[in-house]
């Protein structure tokens, strides 16, 4: 798998490169600002781009804007955005085109190497990887009233993990239940939220996120 990295802090850029290389990925470019990232993506399209939100020269949201531009120019390019903090606003903007292949994680998640690499793989394969904190806030926003409030605690756990972009197998492993039980919960959630059931994991996640972003 081929990855491009945009991160302005040398230590983190270097760490990310090592981490991904250690898991058998090829780092095609490791750059420090949005312009260079776009140039690198155009020159040699990788399987996924890992981008820091805050990049030089303005140190605001250049990374996010570069990622969105890249996705417009190269449709379907999977992008995983990393940030020191997460905002639902930015998550919405990333998800807005509804095509998947999007990740938005706190930088802290890099600490757990295997989980992080798993997220990179998921995004590269066209799935999503949303930070638990984003999902937590989404659920709070929806929890006061409406169908989400009527879910059982277990169903909410499953909903949260599903919204993060986990597959049924991963959810089952995390909650220490069988995959069949997870499937039962997800079916129930889809009925409660009045969503079209879908066998395709990615489409299912996007439907849930679109619902929560309502």
């Amino acid at each position: 798998m081929r990855v491009a990295i945009a991160e302005d802090l040398f230590l983190l850029r270097d760490g990310l490169t090592r981490l991904l290389q250690a898991h058998g990925m090829e780092v095609t470019a490791a750059v420090e600002n949005g312009e260079e990232l776009l140039a690198a993506l155009r020159a040699d399209r990788p399987d996924v781009a890992v981008v820091d939100v805050r990049l030089p020269p303005g140190f605001t949201d250049e990374g996010l804007r570069a990622a969105l531009t890249a996705r417009q120019e190269l449709p379907g390019l999977p992008v995983l955005v990393l940030s020191q903090y997460v905002e639902q606003l930015y998550a919405r903007e990333l998800l807005a085109d509804g095509s998947g292949g999007v990740g938005y994680l706190l930088k802290d998640r890099v600490l757990d190497g295997s989980q992080f690499v798993d997220a990179v793989r998921r995004v590269a394969a066209g799935g999503t990887a949303m930070d638990p904190e984003v999902i937590g806030r989404l659920l709070t926003h929806n929890a006061a009233a409406g169908p989400v409030a009527s879910l059982t605690p277990r169903e909410r756990e499953v909903l949260a993990l599903m919204a993060e972009g986990r597959s049924n197998a991963a959810i089952a492993q995390q909650l220490v239940i069988t995959e069949r039980a997870v499937a039962k919960h997800t079916a129930s959630i889809f009925v409660r939220l009045d969503l079209q059931p879908s066998d395709d994991d990615n489409r299912r996640v996007l439907a849930v996120l679109a619902y929560l972003n309502g």
Binding site: L89, R137, H141
Partner: peptide, 22 residues
């Protein structure tokens, strides 16, 4: 707040509103 620095008042308030339970 970082969004305020990044995007200015309207987006920052929007981000704030998104985190509320109403």
């Amino acid at each position: 707040p970082p969004v305020l620095a990044d995007r200015g008042l309207v987006d920052a308030v929007q981000a704030l509103a998104l985190d509320l339970p109403l």
